[in-house]
Nucleic acid binder design. Sequence first.
DNA 1: TTATATTTCATACGAACGTATGAATTATAC
DNA 2: GTATAATTCATACGTTCGTATGAAATATAA
Lengths: 217, 217
Amino acid sequence: MSRTAHKDSEGDTRERILEVAEKLFAEHGLERVSIRDIIQAAHANLGAINYHFGTKQKLIAALFERRLIPLDQQRLAALDAVEKAAGNQAPKLEAVLEAFVRPAVQQALDPSSGTATFRKLMARSFMEPNPALARLLHRHFEVVVRRFDAALLRAMPGLTRADLFWRMHLTVGALHHSLMMMDHTPPGHPPIRTSVETHVQRLVAFSAAGFHAPLPQ
Amino acid sequence: MSRTAHKDSEGDTRERILEVAEKLFAEHGLERVSIRDIIQAAHANLGAINYHFGTKQKLIAALFERRLIPLDQQRLAALDAVEKAAGNQAPKLEAVLEAFVRPAVQQALDPSSGTATFRKLMARSFMEPNPALARLLHRHFEVVVRRFDAALLRAMPGLTRADLFWRMHLTVGALHHSLMMMDHTPPGHPPIRTSVETHVQRLVAFSAAGFHAPLPQ
DNA sequence: TTATATTTCATACGAACGTATGAATTATAC
DNA sequence: GTATAATTCATACGTTCGTATGAAATATAA
């Protein structure tokens, strides 16, 4: 019986499963992709999922963790850099928003980072009706958001918590939708190709303007 | 054998199935809810799904159609009213955006309309990895968007198609995310309750500002 | 080399799924 | 009232699913 050797030229089984799962889940959704689909595409065995991950839900969790941990770190590091550059002054709104947006866009668009397959999962994340995933996301997001909220309040001292909450949600919605929809082409128009830089600038401009918008009381 | 009478006090079976399906799908997602879940909650029979809808996919389509058709109509009617009020002049950007946003928010928030259960489905719609649904949505959306795009270009004559495309996507993302997240409460803060009116105003203000945002070239 | 740990494999289990069907019941038309 | 259409019912079918297991193979440590 010939078995694929562990850590040979085909790569580590666990890693291979994660890569394949990410691609399939992004394309077809968490529920429509079965673990048999995954092992087939990964040239692995059903028992490997059980061994390495336990359950499908834990595979999903591992998949999200491996993308969210670095994303969180990049966002926080970018915010640190913004605050350091501002010194004793309040950070600029645009810079704070960019620190939030850029790592996600980079992850989604940068072909050299090997993370682009995660983008649709990122886009869908808050829409997924999956309680365990929601809890995982909440854990990741609350750390990041607490830091960003504080910075945003310094950037815009008159902002109420409710206004902040709202505008942050609108920003996240815009970001995520842009990740999901970026393949789309307006009718009768050539495909719109954007770089990371352009994508970030469009989002930051839109969001910063939205943060500054006067609100009827 | 006692069978539930057709069109008696418990209502029409087909309608009952749709109502229950909408609620369950909104809560648990299109894939996690089986038709057995639906018939159980609807006090109906497995064959009734087959009889009235044929397949699960067609049930989903019927469910979306019954919400999207009136939504499309309301959006187009609101836009007609805006354009009529503007007469020979270009419509105001805010008015156009409001014509787009208000019907959806009304549908989602207005308890008297009986449509609030659809809101999470609306929020998730563009994120669903379901090709048939994507096609259905596309059919609905393209009619509406063509009309709104034309009005937006009149409201903002200097806007490029790419800019329009982008900002409309960011607007839709913000709108949908706000529908999904409106139950959420910021940490250490009382729940934020908003009326239809406030929700609409926040969205329109955010989006209009975003439309006006200068873009780096 | 042997012993142990790790990993992969093939398979089983119980449950659940969506689709379909013919019979029975109820509603409608004349 | 009868004939037909519409609706509901109970059930079957074939397939698929996620989880789990013990054996076999491979890797690692001494």
